[in-house]
């Protein structure tokens, strides 16, 4: 007797071997495209959107986090190439941050395993998202809102006062970072890299939205190398994170990552073109709104009675 399939033969259904379920390939590619469009417009990796959206779609959180990291590696390639070509990457600074990111990624894997053992991975992922996205979204909304108001009044946008970097300047062993125009201790970028590596493993984000402001305001790097250097760090740290997840949680779904990439690299090109037609402060304001929306959605998810009270994990 020939095997029977349920329902109509849906051509675009594809089975994810690691997630262990069937998804509509078009939905995943479309989701990647949407995130790519936004990342091209705003110049962010978009991991902070990919992971929650995959979770809302029903992908197990661990698989969503791990595969999203893999996707970000591919999504940052073209940016790194373009910034390298125009000399916008400080490789020395990048190397320090990558080493920090690698350590952060290992520490993150250790924390992830510990949280898994006590069953709090999902809660910690959601809480960290809420706190991180909520505070960054609020800061961006405030800054871009002020910029929009200032340009309406026709006054020059208020230049934020140069942050005091006494603490960073007090750190020992100063190195010279020529391209960044800095003479500071490598400990500061190392710690920054470490923190983003931690975020990458736990949340499946590149961490650009934390790193870029920190590089500008905390480290005081020359702005023309900030984005390129942060992309370089993201590329390597997400790659390391893929390895970490592949060997510890075994949750990297190569099919899922590939589908997301097909969508996101295409979307990013259109997003970049779209961005040229918009005013930068409105772009930043738009991003702030999206970031806050995700934070609010995650916060509601924590407070609402969840659909599933019980969860099962194999021993």
């Amino acid at each position: 007797m020939p095997p029977k399939r349920l329902g109509k033969a849906r051509v675009m259904d594809i089975y994810l071997p690691i997630a262990g379920l069937s998804v509509n390939a078009l939905v995943i590619v479309g989701l990647g495209g949407l995130v790519g469009l936004l990342s091209g417009m705003f110049g962010v990796g978009g991991g902070f959107l990919t992971t929650p959206l995959l979770i809302f779609y029903g992908i197990p959180p661990t698989v969503a986090v791990a595969s999203s990291a893999t996707q970000i590696t591919g999504a940052s390639v073209s940016g790194v190439l373009a910034h390298t070509a125009r000399g916008g990457v400080d490789f020395k600074m990048g190397a320090v941050m990558i080493v920090g990111g690698a350590f952060g990624s290992f520490a993150g894997a250790w924390a992830f395993a510990g949280l898994q053992a006590i069953g709090q991975v999902d809660t910690v992922i959601a809480l960290t998202y809420v706190v991180l996205l909520g505070s960054i979204g609020a800061m961006m909304a405030k800054e871009s809102g002020q910029a929009i108001l200032a340009s309406r009044r026709g006054t020059a946008p208020a230049v934020s006062p140069r942050k005091r970097r006494r603490l960073i300047n007090a750190l020992p062993f100063r190195w010279r970072f020529n391209r960044s125009g800095l003479y500071i201790s490598p400990v500061a970028p190392f710690v920054l890299g470490f923190l983003t590596g931690l975020l990458t493993v736990l949340l499946g984000v590149g961490g650009g939205f934390v790193m870029v402001p920190a590089m500008i305001y905390l480290l005081g790097m020359a702005t023309n190398v900030v984005v390129g250097t942060s992309l370089l760090q993201i590329l390597f740290v997400t790659a390391i994170t893929t390895l970490v997840h592949a060997t510890t949680t075994k949750a990297v779904d190569i099919v899922l990552a590939a589908l997301l990439l097909i969508g996101s690299v295409t979307g990013a090109q259109f997003g970049a073109r779209f961005a040229l037609k918009m005013k930068p402060e409105w772009l930043r304001f738009g991003l702030a709104v999206i970031v806050l929306a995700v934070a609010v959605r995650m916060a509601l998810g924590l407070g609402w009675r969840p659909e599933e009270i019980f969860t099962v994990e194999p021993l």
Binding site: T73, S76, T242, L243, A258, V265
Partner: peptide, 18 residues
């Protein structure tokens, strides 16, 4: 090896797109 393959795939896809 699987992890390296995933990275390679994602690098190649990203490079091809660019």
């Amino acid at each position: 090896t699987y992890g390296f393959a995933a990275i390679a795939l994602s690098l190649v896809l990203g490079w091809v797109a660019s």
